[in-house]
């Protein structure tokens, strides 16, 4: 199961990255058109921001699985594995709390857009609930991954398997962190 989640989050990051590159190309073309042909598509910035919002919300789970959401290990590093594991569980629970609220409010915002027929105030006039629902779905995926992880590490905690908890959701050791930063 965990490997499926990893794979899903990795695919969504690849797709998000692809779309990011696509928006870089769009912006590049817009700049060329504006400077050479005095023509502006109007709205490239807006479409790119939707791509950005959706891409990032679908990447949050990958960030979590890579243990890259910043935690400050002032005391954490000096604690026993059991205490660390307990804090890992607490951390994930806290993150789930705020993510659940974020997701719920994002849904609320999306349904509001739908109800009032909200459209962006630009030449494009995009119907807002469409990008918003894709964005909210990414947040929902982020939340689901957290629920699964929280379940797994709680089970591991009961089984007293602190080492595996650290591998799943511990604060990264320095060696691991740099590996991310420079790995090719």
């Amino acid at each position: 199961m965990l490997s499926i989640i990893h794979a899903l989050s990795r695919y969504s990051v690849w797709i998000s990255g692809g779309f990011l590159l696509l928006s870089a190309v769009l912006v590049g073309v817009e700049v060329l058109m504006r400077n050479i042909f005095q023509y502006s598509f109007g709205g490239v910035d807006e479409i790119s921001s939707y791509i950005f919002a959706i891409g990032v919300s679908w990447s949050l789970a990958f960030t979590l699985l890579s243990r890259a959401h910043i935690r400050i290990d002032l005391f954490y590093g000096r604690m026993t594995p059991t205490w660390r594991a307990a804090l890992d569980i607490l951390s994930l629970a806290c993150l789930l709390c705020v993510t659940a609220l974020l997701f719920q409010q994002a849904l609320d915002s999306t349904t509001t857009s739908f109800e009032i027929g909200a459209r962006s105030n630009t030449p494009l006039g995009v119907t807002l609930w469409i990008p918003q629902s894709l964005w909210a779905a990414g947040l929902g995926f982020f939340g689901l991954v957290q629920i699964y992880l929280l379940g797994s590490i709680t089970r591991l905690f009961i089984k007293n398997n602190m080492k595996q908890i650290a591998e799943i959701s511990g604060v990264k050791s320095l060696d691991e962190e740099i590996e991310d930063e420079i790995s090719a």
């Binding site: 009032i116 027929g117 909200a118 962006s120 105030n121 006039g125």
Partner: peptide
């Protein structure tokens, strides 16, 4: 008013 001109 302009901010929500898209809404309506």
């Amino acid at each position: 008013l302009g901010y929500v001109a898209g809404d309506d």
